[in-house]
């Protein structure tokens, strides 16, 4: 029995030295340690390949495993940019906001302001896009950054002008004129100032005048060069007014009331439509001028029932 135990022990020792020990040693030798640089480089590689979804996961992995790394902020910024490129603008804006709120004076914070503004622009929220840049304008110290802010503000105002917002063209002009001489050469502001000038000089319709003229049914539409609408409005309103008057004269007050109610809607609609037509006319004129220089692509989102114009121009 002792002899058998000794044999078993010897066999175990042999097994240990020949199989288990070399296996463990090999496993240790093959074990790979991922350094922060390796992880970040891999994420950067994916980002360069435009695989933003995977790149974002790898940047997040980097932030999780190496929270004390000096390039952690850069990884967070890249998460935001990846989200931006994936058209997840709301989430991207939140990431950029987190970076901005840390209040560090570096290139990442600076770019975060611009990217957050762009994210709001992409969401169609030109107001917030403007506020972000105006806030950064108060913090910016160097002329180069200020020029860039003014230029981006001009872009926002041009977009607002396209959407029919009043005074946007003059605000765009104001932002462009604030760009320094050196910045003006870089951004070629003269070209854009000429364009704003042309858009301002283009014949416009006064919405207040259109509304005032609409007291005579159809005159507002006539002023806005909508001749068919004007004719229809005139006929409809005069017809309904005459019908209401006749019904009242014939002691049919109930009928007169019903017709009067319908007529009130059409008469108010005539005033509303005239003012609206003047605004639409002005917007169309602005788009016409701006589209001569920039490519404006109409877009349609039937799910949200929204209509928009993609406004692309090289700055």
């Amino acid at each position: 029995m002792k002899f058998l135990k000794a044999h078993l022990f010897i066999l175990f020792i042999i097994f240990w030295f020949l199989i288990i020990l070399p296996y463990n040693c090999c496993a240790q030798a093959n074990q790979m340690i991922i350094t922060p640089d390796m992880q970040f480089e891999y994420a950067e590689k994916l980002f360069a390949e435009k695989d933003y979804e995977t790149a974002m996961v790898e940047y997040k992995r980097f932030i999780h495993f190496f929270p004390d790394s000096i390039i952690r902020d850069q990884a967070r910024f890249k998460v935001g940019v990846s989200l931006f490129n994936l058209n997840k603008f709301n989430e991207a804006a939140k990431i950029f906001n987190e970076i901005i709120m840390e209040d560090k004076e570096n290139e990442i914070t600076k770019e975060s302001f611009f990217f957050q503004s762009r994210a709001f622009m992409e969401m169609g929220n030109t107001g917030y896009a403007q506020i972000v840049l105006q806030n950064y304008l108060k913090l910016a110290k160097d002329m180069e950054t200020k020029d860039r802010i003014y230029f981006n503000l001009a872009k926002i105002h041009l977009t607002q002008a396209r959407n029919g917002k009043s005074d946007s063209l003059s605000l765009a002009r104001n932002s462009l004129t604030k760009i320094s001489r050196s910045g003006a050469d870089i951004y070629n502001t003269d070209q854009y100032l000429d364009l704003v000038g042309k858009a301002e000089q283009e014949s416009k319709k006064n919405p207040k005048l259109a509304g005032a003229l609409a007291i005579i049914p159809g005159a507002g539409f006539l002023y806005c060069e909508r001749y068919r609408d004007a004719f229809t409005t005139f006929l409809l309103n005069t017809g309904l007014l005459y019908a209401a008057y006749t019904a009242f004269e014939n002691e049919n007050k109930a009928l007169a009331g019903v017709i009067g109610f319908v007529e009130t809607g059409f008469y108010s609609g005539n005033i509303y439509g005239s003012i609206s037509s003047a605004h639409k006319y002005n917007r169309a004129q602005t788009i016409k001028i701006l589209s001569k220089e920039f490519s404006i692509i109409p877009g349609l989102d039937l799910k949200k029932n929204q209509y928009g114009l993609s406004f692309n121009y090289c700055f």
Binding site: D229, T232, T233, L236, G265, F266, S268, G269, N270, Y272, G273, S276
Partner: peptide
């Protein structure tokens, strides 16, 4: 009012 305007 907007509906009446649209009808016209």
């Amino acid at each position: 009012v907007m509906a009446c305007d649209r009808l016209v």
